[in-house]
Structures are given as C-alpha cells and as structure tokens.
Amino acid sequence: MLSYEPGDSLAHRLDPRSKLAVQIGFAAAAFAHTTPRGLAALTVVTLAVLYLARTDPRRVVWAFRFVVPFLIAAPLLDGFAWGVWFVPAEAVGPALAGYRVLLVLGVAAAYVRTTPVRDSRAAIQWAVPGRVGQFLGMGVAFVFRFLPVLRADVGRIRDAHRARLGTERSVPDRMGMLVTAAFNRAFERADRFAVALRARCFSWNPTLPELRFSRLDAAALAVAATFVVLSLVTVVPPRTVLSMSVGFVPVGTR
C-alpha cells in the first residue's frame, strides 16, 4: 500500500500545487505521445521523478498490481484473430496504452508518497474558493482520518461472520449482511463525530498550513509547463522529447 511517508527528499520539499501541476502535465504529455519513442523518453522522466521522491519503482508496480490484468488482457484480446490466432500489429496500440498507464501511475505514486494530507487540503482550498472548496478540503481530511478506522471495522465484521460460518451462505446474503453491519457502524460513527465536531466549534475556516512557492517550485512549474506545451504539439520531433527528459534531471538534482 502506498501512502505518505515523512522524509526530506526533493519531492517532499516542493509545494503540493507544483507537484499536482507536474502530474497533470506528465499525464497530458503521455496521452499525446503514446509512441515507443515518446514512452521511452517518459520512462526516463518517471524513473527520475521516483528517484527524486526516493521511491522504489518496484514498490510502485507492486502497489498497482490490480491494473496489470487489464493491461495484459487488452493486447491479447485485440491481437487474437480467428484462423491466424494472433496478429501482433493489432496488439501494439493497446500494449503501448497499457505501458502509458503504468508511467502515469508511477508519477502519481511519487506525489502520494511525498505529500501530507494537510498540504493537499490547503491546495484544494486554494484551487476551489468558497464553501465548496472548504467542504472538499475538510471532507478529504476526514476521509483520510476515518479510512483506517472503517477498514478495521469491515475486517472485524468479516472475522465475526467467518467465525460463525457466515461463509456457508450465498454471495448476496453475505454481501447484504456485511454491508448492513458496516453501514450501521459508519452511520453511528458519523453521528458521534458530528456531535464531537460541533462541540469543538466546527468551522468553515480553520487555519491551514501556508502554501509558499520556492525556487525549487519554479523549476517544477517549468517542467509542468514543458509537458503541457509538448502535449499540445501534435508532431514532435523525437529529439525534442528526449532533450526535455534530459533537461529535467539536472534541474531536479541541482
């Protein structure tokens, strides 16, 4: 499981907004240049980003193993043809698209590993002003807070069902029982939580960490802007893509 880990890597020191900009730019560039050459260059970028975030690429692949069946099934099914069995040319497109997904996941993983919730919340409220942004900010913080609690609840409910031979029942029955129990607990917790929040002057405008762009962020934003420009250029000479990725590494390690 991939989640925030404190550290002092370069990626940890960046502002959350510039990290989000890099992710979005990277995804745009990857979708615009799903060619062997483009993806090769972006692989270098992905590895550089993971290095800057001190994240082992193997951990990322393991964390996202659930998408692998989709990535393998698409080229296999598309390449399959009656009579000749397999047409490799038909499988190339889906295979490249699948690899692209892995790269985008890798860059996103670097953000997840290096950004604390409070920073993300401040970034949301910066991006979405007013009540909506405040609701999204506080709501996201609550989701982070309660996810482990509710996962433990669901785990305990399943254990209790197993201990009482609940596994002998039909699938709809088991689903119904699990969901009912989990819902009741979640609603009880929500109502107690709401009372606790009101008792503590639950307000729309708590003090959040101040977001500040540094010189490092200027470099990251330049990288993000480069990605966006590259994604808008439909036919990019391969050299441009390569120089972009090579240019990124010294910026980060400086």
Binding site: L2, F64, V101, V112, F144
Partner: peptide
Amino acid sequence: MVLYLLAGALGAPVFAGGGAGIGVLLGPT
C-alpha cells in the same frame, strides 16, 4: 462520491486493492 474520488486522487488508498493517486483516475478503470 466526489470526496471519495478527490481523497483517492490526493493519495488516500481508497481505489481497488489500495490504489491511490491521479494515475488511477486516468487509468483504464
């Protein structure tokens, strides 16, 4: 549901098998 998606995009491991990040939202599912 919007909170669920946003929390996942910002790193809460809420997607299938504990996945998180913008990458999942831009991925096949």
